[in-house]
Nucleic acid binder design. Structure first.
Lengths: 105, 105
DNA sequence: TGGCTATTTGGCAATATAGCCAATAATAAT
DNA sequence: ATTATTATTGGCTATATTGCCAAATAGCCA
């Protein structure tokens, strides 16, 4: 593997990793509909504010979400909507997996 | 977050996680062209055979790759080609990130 | 100002992941 | 049969991730 290739794969992996946690997928799912502030997401997930803040920070650093300060709240929104298209495929993968498990029964 | 939702997000996260490591992305990239045996991938990556075997196992469990034994070799192939389509978007994310860094200079 | 709410950051402990080596299994070739 | 080749698994250590708490920061309002 070449060095330039490795750098690119690392960068891609970082973006994918930002989409590899159940809570972050939930957040993505919510932001797909409309922007939400940290407190709203915290409430919905039922975790500590700091935990949600860190998840959002990971997604922000990956370039997936954007934020805007309004009053004391910070509203996060989905910056790269194209990531939503991943889930058609991911769900196909899951479906195929279930199907092949069915065969075993 | 509902329980059924959580289960689904966990399953999706597992698939995404299988695509969140530079080496696994390299493997994906190679398998996109043609099937490869573990020894070929090991050679290309330059890691221990056991390391590559474990990476392949993660991708196999996620339902992304398939394998076939032929002789003493085991050939892995890309089962879910749709995952390749992710990278158009991932590269857009990376491009936007670079662009916004450019603005800062 | 002082207090209140919203968010981020640092620190820490628990857990998960990665990668090497050694041991094992399965097939092929001499 | 014995030996060589290919791959998987278990074990171990190093590193990364997660999630809570506590502390710090920032804006709003009385």
């Amino acid at each position: 593997m070449e060095k330039a290739e490795l750098i690119r794969f690392k960068a891609q992996a970082q973006v994918m990793k930002a989409l590899s946690h159940p809570t972050r997928l939930f957040i993505l799912h919510e932001l797909a509909n409309e922007e939400k502030c940290v407190c709203e997401l915290t409430e919905m997930v039922g975790a500590d504010t700091s935990t949600i803040s860190k998840h959002l920070s990971i997604m922000k650093n990956a370039g997936i979400v954007d934020f805007e300060k309004r009053g004391t709240s910070i509203y996060y929104s989905l910056k790269m909507k194209c990531v939503l298209s991943f889930f058609t495929c991911v769900n196909e993968v899951l479906k195929k997996r279930v199907e092949s498990q069915m065969v075993l029964v």
